[in-house]
Computed example of a mutant assay.
Amino acid sequence: MTFQRLRTALARLAGFALTVVLVGCLAVFGLIALGPHVFGYRTATMLTGSMDPGITPGDVVLSVPQPASEVEVGDVISYHIPVEDHRVETHRVVEVIHNENGTVAVRTQGDANEAPDPWTATLDGDTVWEMKTVVPWIGNGIRALRTPFVQGKIFWAALGLMLLVGLSMIWSRDDEDDAHVPTDAHVPTEESPEPRRAAYADALASLSEELDDEYALVFAGQWSDLLPRRVERVDVTVSSREVSDALDAVLSLKVSSVTVGACDLADAAALIEAAVRDEDWALADTVVSRIPDLADRSRADLTACLAA
């Protein structure tokens, strides 16, 4: 693999990696930041293994509100514990108590714990948050982003990523420009006129055999007279960036040039055709700029062939 191909591969890999990161970030942002406001659910990150194996540390729990009066044994709910720091706990309900004053209390237990939690919690308000689904591992990433180390380095990491992507775009553009610059193998070069004129003689001989000598000469004269108009039409339509019009113009130039033996001009027209189909307007413009000189040379060669 050449260095240029390696650069292109690295640039594409960096672009793909950036796309994956951006899509992932947007998904997490939508889940954590926008989703609760739009769909009304609540998210909480599981910090312990008390609910293994169903919910593991780092999983994000999505809960939806439901009336406290409808809580049943077996539900997994998120609620504030009535002791210590009143943190939010996500455990399974093992007992529901309906108090005389109309409130609802519950006893809970972690699936991985051997005994129920050592408290009875009265559910505040009319609703409670019941777990509906679990999104694995996202919480680990969120917690990592909140650490001082990551927050202190995230700016430089983001800046480095932006620079890498910028360089990859520049490398890709340079590679594309190099690939699209016409070389001597693509655009006809100056050569001895004898081989070129031989092509005209062969083409006119074929026309004479298929039709007649007089019509071959008439067709050659008409091609020469119409050539400036065809060249101008190619220039105008390519400049307009209208694919269908440009193809129509360049195909007319290519087919007519092949018929009379103007191979160099036909090859250049074919190159423009390919560039237009790919909408590579930079390459099309480059070749179009050389068409007038090729057209003048082709008319001169045809005239010399007819006079011989």
Rank of each mutant, 00 (worst) to 15 (best):
R12V: 12
A17Q: 01
V21T: 11
V23F: 14
G24Q: 03
A27K: 01
V28I: 09
F29V: 00
I32Q: 13
A33D: 15
G40P: 05
R42L: 07
R42G: 03
T48S: 15
M51Q: 05
T56W: 14
G58D: 13
G58E: 02
S63H: 04
P67R: 05
A68G: 14
A68W: 13
E70N: 09
D75Y: 01
E84R: 12
R87V: 11
V93K: 03
V96W: 07
N99G: 01
N99A: 14
E100K: 08
N101W: 05
N101V: 06
V106T: 01
N113T: 02
A115Q: 08
P116D: 02
T120A: 07
T122C: 11
K132R: 15
T133Y: 07
V134Y: 05
P136W: 03
G139W: 12
N140P: 00
N140Y: 11
G141T: 03
R146L: 14
A157R: 03
L161W: 15
M162A: 15
L163H: 07
V165G: 12
L167D: 08
S168N: 07
W171F: 02
E176A: 12
E176I: 10
D178V: 07
A179Q: 14
T183K: 09
D184I: 08
A185E: 15
P188A: 15
P193D: 11
P193F: 11
P195V: 09
R196A: 00
A199G: 05
A199E: 15
Y200T: 00
A203I: 02
A205E: 14
S206A: 14
L207N: 01
S208H: 03
Y215M: 13
A216C: 11
L217S: 12
V218F: 13
V218A: 06
F219A: 07
A220G: 08
A220T: 12
Q222D: 13
L226S: 09
P228Q: 10
P228N: 11
E232V: 03
V234C: 09
V236N: 13
V238A: 09
R241P: 10
D248W: 08
V250N: 04
L253Y: 07
S256D: 05
D267S: 15
I272R: 00
R277G: 02
D278I: 00
D278Y: 01
E279N: 08
E279H: 13
E279C: 03
D280K: 01
L283N: 01
D285F: 11
T286V: 12
T286H: 12
A295G: 14
D296L: 01
R299V: 08
R299E: 13
D301M: 04
L302I: 03
A304N: 08
C305L: 06
A307V: 11
